[in-house]
Write a protein that binds this DNA or RNA. Structure first.
Lengths: 219, 219
DNA sequence: CAACTCTATCAACACTGTGTCGAGTAAGTC
DNA sequence: GACTTACTCGACACAGTGTTGATAGAGTTG
């Protein structure tokens, strides 16, 4: 849905305002500077001037390439989201054939890996989401994709009798997907009550499996 | 732990800098203005000037009462956190005697209610947490409290044989508590994939019960 | 090659918001 | 009536954002 594959058709207001040019280097320099600085400090502590300086241009020149700091980060998030969408497709394919429980684990692993590989960007996305409607929408689309897929899996498993009935599949899917988001964020951000990076998956998988396949025993 | 009961001993830098005075009215006016404005728009769109104007004072005078906008919101969050801590104690007491599963539901209900009752403040807390270390720490303490309690419950249930073994109790507790936070936030904020306000509890309770008491059946 | 265009650049400006300083006023208190 | 203490705000200094207008250079193109 969101964007095309690689050439990037420059969505709406995002990106440079003119057309193509050799200033592609500058544009790339800005994006790279942003990614680099995000490894060091939160988005709120990065100014347009930092990005301009990092790319070797003045602040006004920055505005020739991007309409705002947010636009730079949105471009970066777009790429992360596109990569993650790839992971999701793959995961779905794996799930379709073979043991769904093992497939589920692999799916969660892929997703986790996609975001952990770009930890700083993931964190920036969460930060930007708080103040920027476009970021909020973009993230909402991502979440919606996973919720939809997860809902389908749960319904399929219930239909074939492998999973017991329970709360509406979409509701369960929503809660599980949001749990993953939060748990992964806390882990990446190094929050205080948070799971160890290498235990995240074990815990999430266990809860997903129990939520989908387990019925609560009664005392 | 955090603060005292009602007189508020003015923690560290927070609150007015002098001592007591009739200017208590002003301080209250600022806090009330902040709460009112937070019902209307996000924290990032509220300026110190808005708070001062709302309290009928000039901007410099605002700084006589609070060192920053963040300090005002932190004070408000403190109160929410204190109220929520009350709910937690109550919930724990309920849990201690009687049916743990019913108790668990009541506990989640109380928590949910405490935050839903102050939706705007809850949302502001999440926003502030992104940029303010003090807010981050405060929230971390809150989370830690619930994780600790939940861990104890899970371990007790496993010990008495009511719950099957599984991932370390604290890890499961962490994931569940974080799930609740995220799901409730999404619901309050009216995000796009989010649970309906009146279905949140049913879904969360089912997942908690299955995560704690259910073992995943194998296909 | 001269006129013309288009990309690219930046100094200087206008604006918004934060936080501080210092000079007050007004209400006790001794 | 002199002195403190609580409180108030105009004016300032700063930091950050986004815009304007002038200009330089690299290609066309007649």
């Amino acid at each position: 849905m969101e964007a095309a594959a690689k050439p990037a058709p420059a969505a709406k207001g995002r990106g440079r305002r003119g057309t193509r040019a050799s200033g592609d280097d500058r544009e790339r320099a800005i994006l790279e500077t942003a990614e680099r600085l995000l490894e060091e400090r939160p988005l709120s502590e990065i100014s347009v001037d930092d990005l301009a300086k990092g790319a070797g241009i003045s602040r006004p020149t920055f505005y020739f390439y991007f309409p705002s700091k947010d636009a730079v980060v949105l471009t970066i998030i777009d790429r992360l989201v596109a990569a993650a969408a790839g992971s999701r497709e793959e995961a779905l394919a794996t799930l379709a054939q073979g043991d769904p429980q093992a497939g589920l684990r692999r799916a969660l692993e892929d997703l986790y890996g996609a975001f952990r590989a770009r930890r700083a960007v993931t964190l920036a996305a969460a930060e930007l989401r708080m103040t920027n409607p476009e970021a909020r929408d973009l993230w909402a689309q991502v979440m919606e994709g996973w919720v939809t897929d997860t809902t389908a899996v749960i319904e399929a498993e219930r239909a074939r009798g492998a999973a017991p009935p329970g709360e509406p599949a979409r509701n369960v899917a929503t809660a599980l997907v949001q749990m993953n988001e939060r748990v992964q964020y806390a882990s990446f951000a190094g929050e205080s009550p948070a799971l160890d990076q290498d235990r995240v998956l074990d815990v999430l998988v266990e809860i997903w499996l129990r939520a989908i396949y387990g019925s609560a025993a009664h005392t």
